[in-house]
Simulated scan of single mutants.
Amino acid sequence: MQTLIYFLFVVMALSGVISSSQADLKLNYYAETCPKAEKIVLDYVHEHIPNAPTLAATFIRMHFHDCFVRGCDASVLLNFTSSSGNQTEKTAVPNQTLRGFGFIDSVKSLIEAECPGVVSCADIIALVARDSIVVTGGPYWKVPTGRRDGTISNASEALANIPAPNFNFSALQTSFVNKGLDLKDLVLLSGAHTIGIAHCPAFTSRLYNFSGIPGKEDPSLDSEYAENLKEKKCKSINDNTTIVEMDPGSFRTFDLSYYSLLLKRRGLFESDSALTKNSITLSYIKKLLQGSLQDFFQEFALSMEKMGSIQVLTGSAGEIRKHCAFVNS
């Protein structure tokens, strides 16, 4: 009982932090200082994402990874800070497969040409993530702006804060609670796995070395699906190059297929499978599948709005970087 009370206290306290931060953000924050900013982002996304639609999954992942480390402050974009000794978040294992940094830099350059030193890289990530998902047929969510950029980026913090694909339910719950997010947010944000791809090292232990036992397969993984992964995709535990669709047959479409696969024991990651092993998260999954796609979009939007407000820097905190990959000199 004491543990439950403590858990609820932590959730309430962290939720208060997020609410306070969110109050400092507002829609159309740049209406007077850079009125064309959001249109510049949207136009660039509309011009380029249709030719590279898989980047939509990349940018929502980038946004997620950024917000889970020091809050949504664009620290994931930094190449070097004096405090990190060049071991920035980019170099951490969870971020080594991130891409699209050049895309963000291009958007930043366009906005800097319009209004120098006004729009943060953190806001650009948030806007690009949303607009990329929308232009590829996914949900729309509100993106209040006014974030400022951080000046610290450490690989060790990324490794410690970004939920890993081999997390069990307890680890996932703790990770999300620490950011002021609840179990419903966990289920909904995991739904972003309905698009995109993964590299074999993120899950091959489930196929070849489960629980550290050579040759053992994760019994919670559908055997037919596991066999298909081994025969046609990741043919050895040492395969570091092959990519696999996270939502086979539907990985370009933002839909409910991901949740259907979870109930068939075909979630690619252990962290996906973990969502079915708790009665609360399992009930959320079933409720989503009983509802409409539009219901899912609306719920997903609310969780994205919460996530985008985690520990944001506002006011005089942080800075507005001139270049997203470097702190201002």
Results as ranks from 00 to 15, higher is better:
119 V>G: 02
23 A>M: 12
288 L>T: 00
262 L>N: 08
59 F>H: 04
7 F>I: 13
113 A>L: 11
142 K>T: 09
252 R>C: 14
207 L>M: 00
229 L>G: 01
152 I>T: 15
267 G>F: 08
124 I>V: 14
24 D>V: 10
294 Q>T: 06
135 V>R: 05
65 H>A: 15
297 F>Q: 11
57 A>G: 10
279 S>M: 09
80 F>C: 11
310 I>S: 02
274 A>I: 08
327 V>P: 01
30 Y>T: 09
220 S>W: 00
73 D>L: 05
151 T>L: 04
149 D>Y: 07
155 A>G: 03
154 N>Y: 05
200 C>Y: 01
209 N>P: 15
19 S>Q: 14
1 M>L: 14
292 S>K: 04
110 L>N: 13
99 R>T: 15
188 L>V: 08
263 L>R: 07
156 S>K: 14
83 S>G: 13
239 D>N: 13
25 L>G: 03
128 V>N: 04
184 K>E: 08
314 T>D: 06
234 C>D: 03
113 A>H: 12
72 C>E: 10
60 I>F: 06
28 N>I: 04
110 L>D: 10
300 F>T: 02
103 F>Y: 04
200 C>V: 09
31 A>W: 06
173 Q>V: 13
199 H>F: 15
283 S>A: 15
237 I>P: 12
92 A>G: 08
81 T>Q: 05
326 F>S: 03
218 D>E: 07
272 D>P: 05
138 G>L: 12
177 V>G: 04
282 L>A: 02
203 F>Q: 03
240 N>Y: 12
35 P>L: 09
89 E>N: 11
131 D>E: 10
260 S>H: 12
164 A>H: 14
324 C>D: 04
200 C>M: 01
137 G>C: 05
3 T>S: 15
189 L>N: 08
134 V>R: 10
124 I>N: 04
259 Y>V: 09
241 T>L: 12
121 C>F: 11
242 T>L: 10
214 P>R: 10
179 K>R: 09
254 F>G: 07
46 H>Q: 14
160 A>M: 11
114 E>M: 00
205 S>D: 15
312 V>A: 00
168 N>F: 02
300 F>R: 05
111 I>D: 06
68 F>K: 01
158 A>F: 06
45 V>E: 10
219 P>V: 02
193 H>I: 06
137 G>R: 11
295 D>R: 00
139 P>A: 08
193 H>L: 10
159 L>R: 15
269 F>S: 10
4 L>N: 13
130 R>L: 08
285 I>P: 01
106 S>V: 11
88 T>E: 06
